[in-house]
Design a protein around this nucleic acid. Structure first.
Length: 222
DNA sequence: AAGCACGTCAACCGCATACCC
DNA sequence: CGGGTATGCGGTTGACGTGCT
């Protein structure tokens, strides 16, 4: 596209700010015709005055089919806690284990629940309320959740990039028995992770800080 | 009722990495 | 191999909504 240098434009100002329904329609139509990708050519083909970067973000975080709207479920929260403990702020990696959820959404969730500075009593109060409200429901749904999307993700997709974390998990579990075993382990870990987090607000700060892990330090991989 | 504080979330920005020529 | 471009990722910002005083 003329005037483009990467995401930038030389001779045209990109529109910024909230997307209008009309812009959404244009973007949806573009993806329907051309598929995902080639974001830098969206403006030229669709008439949108948005840079490719903005278009990609809008599509991935809001318009893409299959996205779940609304609050994260207790089991999704548990999975986030567990995976964040493993990988830190690798939001896109964590998002792969939560179909229909975006890295942005998970990042916002984590920031909202574990980063905001509150007094210890406020944190404790909030966590107590949350935990008591959801614990029973959560414990009940953990196994069901693992069966419904985590395990299939591990086992189904044979075409994933071999550098992908999920692919590594898959390769490490060669038999269905071992996969079942891993599933149980993960469910237990998630449950224990939730216990820890809901126990005391202190862990909220601790877990967030874990996100800023030292990359030179060995990290346990799945 | 008005003003303020806080929480949420969509979107932007800069950097890193992948890809292509 | 190196440079330019495309894409992806994580951190941050700011608008808006809501609850509290």
């Amino acid at each position: 596209m003329a005037g483009m240098i990467g995401w930038r434009m030389q001779d045209q100002e990109w529109r910024k700010g909230p997307w209008t329904p009309e812009e959404d329609d244009l973007l949806i139509e573009y993806v329907r015709m051309h598929g995902e990708g080639r974001w830098s050519s969206v403006a030229g083909c669709s008439g949108l005055k948005r840079c490719g970067k903005s278009c990609r973000l809008r599509w991935v975080n809001y318009l893409r089919p299959g996205l779940k709207k609304g609050q994260l479920t207790p089991q999704e929260e548990g999975i986030i806690i567990e995976l964040h403990a493993l990988w830190g702020n690798k939001w896109s990696t964590i998002a792969r284990y939560l179909p229909g959820r975006t890295d942005n959404e998970i990042k916002n969730y984590w920031r909202t629940n574990f980063k905001t500075k509150k007094t210890p009593s406020q944190i404790k109060e909030k966590q107590k309320l949350k935990a008591s409200f959801r614990r029973d429901q959560y414990q009940q749904e953990v196994n069901e959740t693992m069966n419904s999307f985590v395990l299939p993700y591990y086992t189904e997709d044979n075409n994933r990039n071999k550098n992908d974390d999920a692919y590594a998990v898959k390769c490490s579990s060669t038999t269905s028995e071992q996969q079942q075993y891993n599933q149980c382990l993960m469910a237990q870990d998630v449950a224990s992770g939730w216990d820890v987090v809901s126990e005391d607000g202190f862990w909220s700060e601790f877990l967030w800080d874990m996100g800023n892990y030292n990359p030179n330090q060995p990290v346990m991989e799945p």
